[in-house]
Design a protein around this nucleic acid. Structure first.
Lengths: 106, 106
DNA sequence: ACTTCACATAAGTGTCTGCTTATCTGTGGC
DNA sequence: GCCACAGATAAGCAGACACTTATGTGAAGT
């Protein structure tokens, strides 16, 4: 379990990987599409995606000649669970999460 | 702003640092107390605390001859804000955060 | 002033990371 | 079968990271 968190935080520690993750959060994409406008070589992208996949933050699905990637909700949920341990330290004025909760209640 | 996230995730990428952070979440402590039962040298602890402090996850306060450390809510809030961007991917069945929201509404 | 204790900083070192170029694998079209 | 293209893997390398030992700093007690 702690090993999982290790993979997750390690994956997110790299700014390029966070950018890839953020891009995927906007919609599933193949590796080539992700690469557009990112000044990153093809092998580098492939390696980053492998790390994100290993951390459970991203899923892959072969689709004809392309490989489609998308955010894995399981990974996001793990971060949420980890963060929930420290809810005692969320200042009340931070209401970004309050908004989220309201949305989830609907 | 992205630099801040970089510091945060990089700080949390190290398991030893996460353990320190978790220990501090249970109550403020000085560096020596933190070191108890952790098989870690004094300089290593000092360096880890410096990284956590640099990331805004931990605060320090001199108190006579000791330096007291505690969790910085601002850092935790930043993670919450970052995570909030991906709320679309939190599976509904993950209710750890729902519980949190309920508590916040009270 | 001197010692003691808590902690920070300096300097050095092995290991890990992220990048590169080169090459392999796999799938579809002809 | 062959070629073209998407992507993965291999190998090598520069820089970053976490640790170590040694030393510095700063505050309290005598």
């Amino acid at each position: 379990m702690a090993v999982v968190e290790d993979d997750i935080f390690r994956a997110l520690a790299d700014p390029t990987r966070r950018a890839i993750f953020e891009k995927l959060a906007g919609g599933s994409m193949n590796a080539s599409a992700l690469r557009e406008g990112m000044a990153i070589s093809q092998p580098a992208m492939s390696q980053h995606l492998a790390v994100l996949r290993g951390a459970g933050l991203v899923r892959e699905a072969r689709q004809d000649r392309f490989v489609n990637y998308d955010v894995d909700p399981a990974g996001v949920a793990l971060i949420a669970q980890w963060l929930a341990k420290y809810r005692a330290y969320w200042p009340a004025r931070i209401d970004a999460l309050k908004v989220v909760l309201k949305e989830m209640d609907q």
